[in-house]
């Protein structure tokens, strides 16, 4: 048996609402479908939502908190996904008891997961306070997700600085909610603008896609249904690149510059 090392990957953004949890859910499913034993750890236990996006909200009985306290076994707290048995969710803690968790607790939790999983995705809470510090203490590598907006990029920059001081390596970037049309019109920060400013390698590019909302409504991540929507493809590609596969990144300039895109833009251009 080859010695196995679990990758503990933090998914963070600084700013809230840019798509951390959506990425965690979709990436978790995509990895599991590729045969990777994956655990998703909801470190945002104050306002946890990962269970909801995965459609597992009714199946949570215990959390890592009870496991650490010795009141249940790890297997009891892990919620296995029915359609994707390679994926399990572990909520970090009970929202009613926020103060218990410390960096050592998070490290103990990922330590417990290590023997049974190849990848642990840690869904980081927004902000850079205690919740972030707890989550980062358990990770070795990180994915920073941001959108091409000034506020999100600024917060991402702050988080990258913190990840550097914690010695997290590698740190890779996922650019979310890209609108190729706006980029082509130079009304949105370009992909190069963002990667230049943040100086991170790009792991994925996700275009704005209404299907993401639909899938969230249903509690079925896009990558689960084998959907061919642009975002589903983008999330799957993130998973493949994370596994070391060389998947070329789409060129956003071309996404919005085809003849069809040009025509539809011409038609859609609003008059005043």
């Amino acid at each position: 048996m080859t010695p196995h090392r679990t990758r503990n990957i933090l998914i963070c953004s600084g700013k809230g609402g840019v798509g951390k949890t959506t990425l965690t859910a979709n990436l978790g499913i995509a990895l599991a479908r590729q045969g990777v034993r994956t655990a998703v750890l909801d470190a945002d236990f104050g306002l946890r939502n990962l269970d909801l996006l995965l459609g597992l909200e009714n199946r949570i009985v215990f959390t890592a908190q009870e496991v650490l306290a010795g009141s249940c076994r790890l297997e009891q707290a892990l919620v296995k996904h029915k359609q994707e048995p390679n994926l399990a969710l572990l909520p970090a803690g009970n929202p009613r008891m926020l103060e218990w968790l410390k960096p050592e607790d998070m490290q103990a939790i990922v330590g417990m997961l290590a023997p049974s999983f190849d990848v642990v995705l840690i869904d980081c809470p927004a902000g850079i306070e205690d919740g972030f510090k707890n989550a980062v203490s358990a990770a070795q590598e990180a994915i920073v997700i941001t959108t091409p907006e000034v506020s999100a990029v600024r917060d991402a920059d702050r988080v990258i600085g913190l990840l550097n001081t914690h010695g997290i390596q590698p740190i890779q970037l996922v650019l979310n909610r890209v609108r190729p049309k706006m980029m082509a019109n130079q009304e949105m920060l370009s992909v190069n603008d963002v990667t230049d400013i943040l100086a991170l390698p790009l792991l994925g590019l996700v275009v704005e896609d209404e299907q993401v909302i639909v899938s969230t409504n249903r509690g079925e991540p896009l990558t689960l249904s084998g959907s061919h929507s642009p975002a589903a493809l983008a999330y799957s590609n993130v998973a493949r690149r994370l596994q070391g596969e060389d998947v070329p990144l789409p060129d956003p300039a071309k996404m919005g510059r085809g003849l069809r895109a040009k025509l539809s833009r011409l038609i859609k251009t609003k008059i005043f």
Partner: peptide
């Protein structure tokens, strides 16, 4: 000017 340019400069 393009708002992306303004955004980039403000961010920097």
């Amino acid at each position: 000017r393009a708002s992306a340019t303004t955004a980039r400069e403000r961010l920097q």
